[in-house]
Simulated scan of single mutants.
Amino acid sequence: MRARRPGAIAEAAARRPRGLPLGERGRLLIVAADHPARGALAVGGDPLAMGNRLDLLERLTLALSRPGVDGVLGTADILDDLLLLGALDRKVVVGSMNRGGLAGAAFELDDRFTGHRAQDIERLGFDAGKLLLRIDRTDPGSLSTLHAAARAIDDMAARRLPVFVEPFLSRRVNGKVTSDLSPEAVATSLAIASGLGGTSAYTWLKVPVTRDADGMSRALAASTLPVVLLGGEVHGDQDGAYERWRGALRLPTVQGLVVGRSLLYPADGDVAKAVDTAAGLLQET
């Protein structure tokens, strides 16, 4: 179909049944799958876990079929596949906007907007955008990303489209970009992200969960903007991660979860079980 009917993607987007707007759906569970476009294919000890696209699509369609899953976050190639498969009907669809900061690259923190533009998200009838904002005070590339992020927020707000901003304070350790997840660093990153653009009316924050529950509360106190929790990759302690998510979901600005590899590639291989557990946490809180 891709070779012979490329127009089928736009046709599928045009006829896709839409669900409730983002802010009216209540608690959100969104599955994230935008890692491959940044060259981040590894999960755990497998360097090419996300490198098999058919396997990834099987995992995504299974996750999207489970009760309580509201939608998906992805780059154009993945969302186009899901449109053709009819997997996005009445789902929240979030386009990933900046993927130019390739994992391990010298220019990683100059994270150019190589994915969805605001006009693409509007044209396709998607519900929101997402951008990654890693800030290293010693790397000039962060300033370029900061400036581009502000303009992307303006472009989305002009179309009344929400945008999830995922901020981190980062630094290089032995050449590898590492994010600081201390409460102080998370609070600082949220304060910076909240102030970007000419209005914050359509800005949501996508926030990592700190290991300390009190620290999470202090970090989220830095902003009044709506928050979705970033699941991140879980290293062998899935139960501990669920417990941290459960606690953070009780905080007043938190609207839900956006989780990728830990649901799509759980340690026990049971995608349905992992997704159902996450959905259950939203029902509890």
Score class of each variant (00 low, 15 high):
M1S: 13
A3M: 12
E11F: 05
E11Y: 02
R15L: 12
R18C: 11
L20I: 11
L20S: 12
L20Y: 14
P21H: 02
G23C: 08
R25F: 12
G26C: 13
R27D: 14
D34S: 10
H35G: 02
A37I: 09
R38V: 10
A40E: 15
A42R: 14
G44P: 01
P47I: 00
L48D: 12
A49H: 10
M50H: 02
M50A: 08
G51F: 01
R53P: 10
R53I: 08
D55E: 13
L56T: 09
L57H: 00
E58D: 12
R59K: 10
L60H: 05
T61A: 00
L64A: 03
R66F: 10
R66I: 15
V69R: 01
V72C: 01
L73N: 11
L73P: 11
L73M: 09
G74W: 00
L82W: 06
L82V: 05
L88S: 08
V92R: 07
V93A: 09
V94Y: 09
S96W: 14
S96M: 08
M97C: 15
D110Q: 09
R112W: 11
F113L: 14
F113I: 12
H116R: 07
H116K: 07
H116V: 13
A118G: 10
D120F: 11
D120Y: 11
E122F: 14
E122A: 15
L124H: 03
L124K: 10
G125F: 05
F126I: 04
D127E: 10
K130S: 04
R134I: 03
D139N: 13
P140A: 07
G141R: 15
S142P: 13
T145K: 14
H147M: 10
A149C: 08
A152F: 15
A152Y: 15
D154F: 00
D155L: 07
M156T: 05
M156F: 15
A157L: 02
R159L: 13
F164P: 00
E166C: 00
S170H: 04
R171W: 11
R172G: 03
V173H: 07
N174H: 08
S182G: 15
P183I: 01
A185S: 07
A187W: 02
A191I: 03
A191M: 02
G198E: 13
G198S: 13
Y202R: 06
T203N: 08
V207M: 06
T210Q: 06
D212R: 09
A213I: 11
G215D: 06
S217F: 08
R218W: 00
R218C: 13
R218D: 15
R218K: 11
T224F: 06
T224M: 04
T224D: 14
V228W: 04
L230M: 14
G232D: 05
V234L: 04
D237Y: 00
G240A: 05
E243P: 10
E243Q: 13
R244Q: 07
R244N: 04
R246A: 10
G247Y: 06
R250M: 01
T253I: 03
V254G: 01
V258D: 09
G260L: 05
R261E: 05
S262Y: 12
A267W: 08
D276H: 09
D276S: 15
A279Y: 10
A279R: 09
L281C: 02
L281S: 05
L281G: 03
